[in-house]
Write a protein that binds this DNA or RNA. Structure first.
Lengths: 292, 292
DNA sequence: CCCTTCCATAGGGGATGCCTATCGCGATCA
DNA sequence: TGATCGCGATAGGCATCCCCTATGGAAGGG
């Protein structure tokens, strides 16, 4: 059974005429006759009763017609759906991002993407960089905005560096600035009780690692919150925190950002996806917007 | 798009493995690879992400898979349905028959046919021979048991003579036999008031024609009924009627059948179908049982 | 570092689809 | 009744396609 044969069969069934069906399908009449005959041979039954001037479906033809129509319609649908995916009229991107990116650069980028491709569904997964890498590997995410460097346990990922953020110490404007108002180094944080993110945030590992490298263990007054909660605790004067500079700009009043001098803390945000599977078309387009 | 390509596509999607899919489809691996590639070329999109040891569907592949499955299932269904028609496991016969045949030979034949092919729907159209011929021509009936000879207006029909019935004069046992108990000829009916069928019954034309040939116009006490009604009127003594011998045997008590001597009236029952269109398989089978 | 696994590519041979030309058969009409 | 027309079937040639075997090439595993 061939698609072409079904097309010809439906054409003859609808025109009740071999010659006119051949014209409609832009094919020579003998070709069409042959294909109908081949189909009849394969099915083992005549499909048309060829009475002179009155081509009619046999019962086998009647049985085949609705199925043939549905098969051809499904084939058209398949072609159409794939085209819509290609043309980004439909589709889905599952994007992971760290909280700071979500509140920082992402809204504007997603707005631009959605305007360009309103048919594409955008699913954002907010989480710590390590979680996101794991979810990329599991195939739950198409793309993720993660923090470099990748952990050693990371699967083969293709990464593109997007930006490097300086980390600053954020504190409440209600309290005196940390370090007494002068320059601030990591070592100065030894004296400052801190508000710390939950496990999974790369900022936690980064900060704790920097403190230990400076020779002390940081002291937490509160720990375990997400980004917004941590900033709220800082604003309430529970302690200081180390966050990306970009976050403070969006965090509203009541907070003070103090840069770190000496060996500045920074982190690099990169766009990552699995190396072994090409991301879907829509994800590639989002990557193009993010990187370009 | 080819059925074969969809088969291969589904096989790869299910095995996640080109080589094993090729084995499953009993085809060389390069052939399968080529067909998948051809399908991808036609659709303009990759269907699989060919990561080493981890073949996965792309989004285009995901979109295609359910449609491909349905298309292949429909194709199987089409083949199956046609086979069931061929094997008489399903189907329909629209059979026309005159009332006398319906009450006479038909029940036994239909019982045998239904036992042999319980999946075949039997639609019986009871009517006068002329009506049946018209309905054959219109394609409303597949087969009909009609009375020969065919009228001149008949379309091209293929007929097979089944049996020749003698016509008898039926009368009420409550009354003296027509013709005074001796032999009975058509001419004797000149004195007998008759009960006559409605127009359309070939028996009407046959009887009236015979009377006229004998030189008189028959007199009707009642006219217009179907077979059962006519027999009822005769039983009630309203007159005599000319009916097939076979009918009297099934008509119950109270009736007397008197054969016609001299030039006996008879009629020939034949099975007819259109010459220009082959009857459906199930109808041909019923014909085989009727004729054989 | 070699070997295995697995998909892609190359090239040849048989099958298949489409073409033009022609036949056969009813129907129509003079 | 014979010529013509309409329409589907058949015949034969040509291009294409599909499948085959052989081989390439890249990614893991021992």
């Amino acid at each position: 059974m061939q698609f072409q044969q079904l097309v010809y069969f439906v054409a003859v069934a609808e025109t009740r005429h071999f010659t006119r069906a051949a014209e409609r399908e832009h094919v020579a009449q003998p070709s069409l006759s042959q294909q109908i005959k081949a189909l009849e041979r394969e099915l083992g039954a005549e499909l048309f009763s060829r009475a002179r001037g009155n081509i009619a479906l046999t019962d086998a033809g009647e049985a085949l017609l609705p199925l043939a129509r549905r098969i051809l319609a499904d084939a058209d649908t398949a072609r159409l759906e794939v085209q819509e995916l290609l043309q980004l009229r439909r589709g889905r991107v599952r994007l992971g991002a760290t909280p700071s990116v979500c509140t920082g650069m992402l809204p504007e980028v997603l707005r631009a993407f959605h305007t360009a491709h309103p048919g594409i569904e955008l699913l954002i997964e907010e989480g710590g960089s390590l979680d996101l890498v794991r979810e990329l590997a599991r195939g739950v995410l198409d793309l993720a905005l993660i923090v470099l460097p990748l952990p050693p346990s990371a699967p083969p990922l293709t990464t593109v560096e997007l930006l490097t953020e300086d980390l600053v110490v954020v504190s409440s404007r209600e309290l005196p600035p940390p370090g007494g108002g002068g320059e601030l180094t990591i070592a100065d944080l030894r004296e400052e009780p801190m508000v710390m993110f939950r496990h999974g945030y790369d900022l936690r590992d980064l900060t704790v690692g920097a403190c230990r490298a400076a020779g002390f263990e940081p002291v937490f007054t509160v720990e375990g919150g997400e980004m917004d909660a941590v900033l709220g605790f800082v604003r309430a004067g529970l302690g200081v925190a180390v966050v990306p500079e970009m976050v403070v700009a969006h965090a509203g009043p009541g907070l003070r950002a103090t840069p770190l001098t000496g060996s500045p803390l920074r982190r690099t945000i990169a766009l990552a996806h699995r190396t072994d599977v090409a991301p879907p078309r829509a994800a590639r387009e989002l990557k193009r917007i993010l990187v370009g």
